[in-house]
């Protein structure tokens, strides 16, 4: 069991009456990975997480956490996960420390150990000052932290956070990011979020889900490369317009090009490579050979957001109506 991957999902399907929320997804999350779970609204992220947390049954397929089947051994699975649900539900009538203590006891921690762990997570999540406050009277960001602390309190093997950073201020987002990075060294983490830079910075891998299907599952770097979105080169060259348009035609490395007039005799050229090759030396060589002038040469980097938009747009025409 120790060497089994943390999450193994095979052909998992969840159907609601009249709607398929998760449509035969298959993926694996290895131990120690920090995985971002992305997808537009209604993609099925929360549903998948709920199935993994043994809260919902699936309609078909297999899901295993730490080698335990979520349906057959839910107790083993639940003991190993720290799950923060999407809406971050808390008992709003309890005080912060009281609530965490209660949750720790619920998760089977002994009396002394639950005290120690609560102290630690209060520290980790920056809740020490508010530990006497009633959770219902906290601001949303602080409640979010309480939910996070709850997910961590029993030192789970797998932490699943469903949109943990909504409602946090930038400082706090940074702090959470740091916390996740820190935790990620020892634990497996699955985060669903819409804040993509965060994923880019914290996650080693992303899973992109749309309409219940997995569109991509890879490291961000690989994704960028595979989708050939990377490596578009922008150059500003002073040259005769015609010559500038003609010179790219015969080059096999270049897939598309575009020439637009800039100011004066300058033109702005956008070049897309065929298989991710770096076009900058080639451009420079051409300019030098023709004795043109070059005032800018940049290789644009696409963000995860671009990938996300790119990937989900085609199917996303009917998104709003879902």
């Amino acid at each position: 069991m120790i060497d089994s991957p943390m999450i193994e999902v095979h052909d998992l399907t969840k159907r609601y009456p009249g709607r398929t929320a998760v449509d035969g997804i298959t993926f694996t999350v290895g131990r120690g990975e920090v995985v971002g779970f992305l997808g537009p609204n209604g993609a099925g992220k929360s549903t998948t997480m709920r199935i993994l947390a043994c809260f919902l049954p699936a309609t078909g397929g297999t899901a295993r956490v730490a080698g335990f089947d979520v349906y057959r051994e839910p107790d083993e699975v639940r003991r190993r996960i720290g799950y923060m649900p999407e809406s971050n539900p808390l008992h709003l009538d309890m005080r912060v420390r009281e609530y965490l203590k209660f949750r720790a006891r619920l998760k089977g921690l002994g009396w002394q150990r639950s005290r120690d762990r609560v102290d630690i997570v209060l520290q980790q999540c920056g809740l020490t000052e508010v530990h006497r406050r009633i959770t219902g009277q906290l601001s949303k960001g602080y409640r979010q932290r309480v939910g996070l602390a709850d997910a961590l309190v029993h030192e789970p093997d797998l932490i699943m956070l469903d949109e943990p950073t909504i409602g946090l201020d930038p400082h706090q987002i940074r702090a959470v990011r740091a916390l996740i990075k820190e935790l990620g060294k020892t634990t497996t983490i699955l985060i669903s979020t819409h804040i993509l830079p965060e994923v880019e910075m914290t996650c080693s891998r992303v899973l992109i889900l749309n309409q219940g299907r997995i569109l991509a599952a890879d490291t961000t770097e690989n994704l960028k490369r595979k989708l050939s979105l990377d490596g578009q080169v922008i150059a500003e060259i002073a040259a005769p317009h015609e010559a500038l348009r003609e010179c790219w035609r015969d080059l096999p490395e270049i897939e598309r090009w575009d020439v637009a007039p800039a100011d004066g005799e300058w033109f702005r050229v956008a070049l897309t490579p065929r298989n991710g090759a770096d076009l900058r030396p080639l451009v420079f060589a051409i300019v030098r050979d023709n004795e043109w002038s070059l005032r800018e040469l940049t290789r644009s980097r696409h963000s995860l957001e671009d990938i996300f938009i790119h990937l989900t747009r085609q199917q996303g025409k009917d998104l709003p109506g879902q």
Binding site: R50, A53, C54, F55, D75, R78, R79, I81, Y83, P85, S87, P89, L90, H91, L92, R103, L106, K107, G108, D150
Partner: peptide, 14 residues
């Protein structure tokens, strides 16, 4: 209705 049922039932309780 408040959703705490989800956090309750995803804790390791029978």
């Amino acid at each position: 209705s408040t959703g705490t049922y989800e956090s309750l039932m995803t804790a390791p309780v029978g």
